[in-house]
């Protein structure tokens, strides 16, 4: 139902390293889960059933923190930092 290649692609998309030995079991497990959840396709649902309860709930962007008030707290959580920056490897 789902091939090892598909799982490899999904793993790349979701930035998950996956070993070749795990590919086998994961594709089997995901295949059987998809088979199980696929039963919803026997449910009869028209276009009108489109979750009307989901809506955006926005607020005014007001009362911001004072500049720098949280900087040290948040930066101290980063695995790597340099001065007031989060440090990562070369991007381009």
């Amino acid at each position: 139902m789902i091939s090892k290649d598909d799982i490899k692609k999904l793993a790349t998309l979701s930035r998950l390293q996956i070993s070749d030995s795990e590919l086998e079991s994961v594709s089997k497990e995901i295949g059987s889960i998809l088979e199980y959840v696929g039963t919803i396709n026997s449910a009869i649902a028209g276009e009108e059933e489109n979750s009307p309860e989901i809506y955006n709930n926005l607020r005014e962007d007001e009362n911001p923190n004072d500049t720098g008030a949280q900087t040290e707290t948040l930066l101290s959580s980063a695995p790597k930092r340099e001065e007031n920056f989060v440090k990562v490897k070369q991007v381009m």
């Binding site: 959840v37 919803i40 396709n41 449910a43 649902a45 028209g46 059933e49 489109n50 979750s51 009307p52 309860e53 989901i54």
Partner: peptide, 8 residues
């Protein structure tokens, strides 16, 4: 499909 069945 799942979001629809959820509302049902």
């Amino acid at each position: 499909k799942a979001t629809k069945v959820r509302s049902l």
